[in-house]
């Protein structure tokens, strides 16, 4: 090793991620103050929390075992309605998303198309599905159609945005290579863009189906069809064993959906 008179420094400090110390400490301090304020202004009724604990216990106990028998028919009906709602909303949403997504990709579309499609994406992403569902129920009446509308709108916002981002982030050389062969716009999309984004898009559509099912299980809370209505009824009637049964069915379906979609994604890629 080097002698003590070495010309080299004895210590080294990792450069800070944020170089300006004022900004760094300002951010740290600001975050600390914010968290303190946020926690400080959180109104919690600890007596109510304490009183609620036995109820929580009862709720938990209801899972062992859950009661599937009493309301089986109702649960199955509600679940099926949720599933079909999710499927049709995913398909409808994706079909609508493809043109919007292509339009919202900066490197594909003329500026006005880009802006218009971005507007569609932004406006359909802004509000949570539940709020959209509340209005869909007001407009289209109670039932799964309202849920279908709400979920489709959500799907467009999700899918078109990711599609557009994926296209914008794609490998430029491949796209240029295909373009340089003298291909038309559609050929270009088909040969250069589609192969690059397709596997991920299939993955995402399965992922969105997942999300849509989960959402379709709750839009019923505001009357837009599916199992959610039964869920909220069971809770308000203190029929926790039914609540547990419904939740377990939802979890089971979500898990199986996830496994299937994982398997399909592997198969696709």
């Amino acid at each position: 090793m080097s002698p003590p008179t070495s010309p080299y420094p004895n210590s080294w400090k990792k450069p800070h991620f944020i170089k300006n110390p004022l900004l760094r400490w300002g951010l740290i301090l600001g975050t600390a103050i914010y968290v303190a304020l946020a926690l400080g202004t959180m109104e919690v009724n600890w007596i109510r929390v304490w009183e609620g604990l036995p109820r929580g216990q009862r709720l938990l106990a209801a899972f062992f075992p859950p009661n599937f028998s009493d309301t089986r028919g109702v649960i199955i009906d509600g679940i099926l309605e949720s599933i079909w709602m999710a499927i049709i909303a995913t398909i409808g949403g994706i079909v609508l998303s493809v043109p919007v997504g292509l339009g919202a990709a900066r490197n594909l579309s003329p500026r006005w198309v880009y802006l218009f499609c971005r507007f569609i994406v932004a406006s359909s992403r802004t509000f949570p599905e539940i709020i959209v569902a509340i209005f869909a129920v007001k407009f289209f009446g109670f039932g799964p159609f309202a849920g279908f509308i709400a979920l489709s709108i959500g799907t467009v916002g999700f899918f078109a945005k990711l599609l557009a981002e994926d296209i914008e982030a794609m490998n430029k050389t491949q796209a240029e290579a295909v373009r340089s062969t003298g291909s038309s716009w559609f050929q270009w999309i088909n040969y250069a863009i589609q192969p690059q984004v397709m596997p991920r898009m299939i993955g995402l559509s399965l992922y969105r189906l997942d999300i849509n099912f989960r959402e379709s299980a709750v839009v019923g809370i505001v009357g837009a069809g599916g199992i959610g209505a039964h869920l909220i009824t069971s809770i308000s009637r203190y029929e926790y064993d039914t609540t547990a049964a419904i939740l377990l069915v939802i979890i089971a379906i979500v898990i199986s959906l996830e496994y299937t979609s994982g398997y399909l994604r592997k198969w696709v890629q």
């Binding site: 869920l231 809770i235 979890i251």
Partner: peptide, 16 residues
């Protein structure tokens, strides 16, 4: 697997 709205439903029962 469970939507935050459902978690909220359950937690409202428990913690108010």
């Amino acid at each position: 697997s469970i939507n935050s709205l459902v978690w909220a439903l359950l937690l409202v029962v428990v913690v108010g």
